[in-house]
């Protein structure tokens, strides 16, 4: 399964005068786990947003899973996001007044129809079977992040994006989350692209690229 899932050529994103992402050529294979490292403002989040269909490139070519993201309409982008991509946020971004299950069901609702049983199963799978009816405020950071993961994978995405998923977590929680992701990936066979500051976290990936000032400066394969 070494077919190409993501291909970008000369991918650029400018915010006014500021060039957040300089022309970037990147290929990611199906099922690969790619870590992106770089300090703040290096353009890694910009890249992630472009791949996740949250933002549009200023210039260049970007193709994910055979879909040319530049030509998609707004609603086409929305469809791409709900059917193809799952995103894990650093801030979790759970809806505060909905319970864990309801937060997951919301993702199901936007995708197709809500299914509570399936949402429960998904939460049990991330080890939160006992906290189904709790609101995000009543959960710890690690638990919140696991809800966020459950939500991200509920619609069986082919691409899972993580924007510093462990940025706010302590060492123990980080480990739990990373192990969970690894397990899920083994089951579901999705591609992971993860932005991180943490070398330890990046090491979970098959390959790590380093961005600096919008330019890819280094690429490391696992075991290098």
């Amino acid at each position: 399964m070494m077919d190409v899932l993501i291909e970008t050529r000369g991918l650029t994103r400018n915010y006014g005068e500021i060039c957040a992402l300089k022309p970037l050529d990147l290929r990611v294979n199906n099922g690969e786990w790619l870590s992106i490292m770089g300090h703040s403002g290096s353009g890694k989040s910009t890249l992630l947003n472009l791949l996740g269909g949250l933002d549009r490139p200023s210039d260049g070519f970007i193709r994910v899973g055979g879909e040319d993201l530049r030509v998609l309409s707004e609603d086409g982008m929305a469809r791409y996001r709900r059917e193809f991509v799952g995103i894990i946020f650093q801030q979790h971004h759970l809806i505060p007044y909905l319970t864990a299950v309801e937060n997951i069901m919301m993702a199901q609702y936007f995708h197709s129809v809500p299914d509570e049983a399936e949402a429960r199963t998904a939460l049990e799978r991330v080890g939160l079977g006992h906290r189904l009816k709790n609101r995000p405020g009543e959960l710890s950071g690690g638990e919140q992040q696991r809800v966020c993961i459950a939500r991200a994978i509920i619609n069986s995405p082919r691409l899972l994006l993580g924007d510093e998923p462990t940025g706010n977590l302590d060492h123990g929680s980080t480990r739990v989350v990373m192990e969970l992701l690894s397990e899920l990936r083994a089951e579901e066979q999705f591609t992971i692209i993860m932005v991180t500051h943490n070398h330890e976290v990046a090491a979970w990936g098959d390959r790590t690229i380093y961005l600096d000032d919008g330019v890819m400066v280094r690429e490391e394969l696992k075991g290098d």
Binding site: E83, Q108, H111, S112, V113, D115, E118, I154, N155, S156
Partner: peptide
């Protein structure tokens, strides 16, 4: 698979 099932249901 949940997502596929729901898509069909919809």
């Amino acid at each position: 698979q949940g997502a596929e099932r729901r898509t069909l249901l919809k």
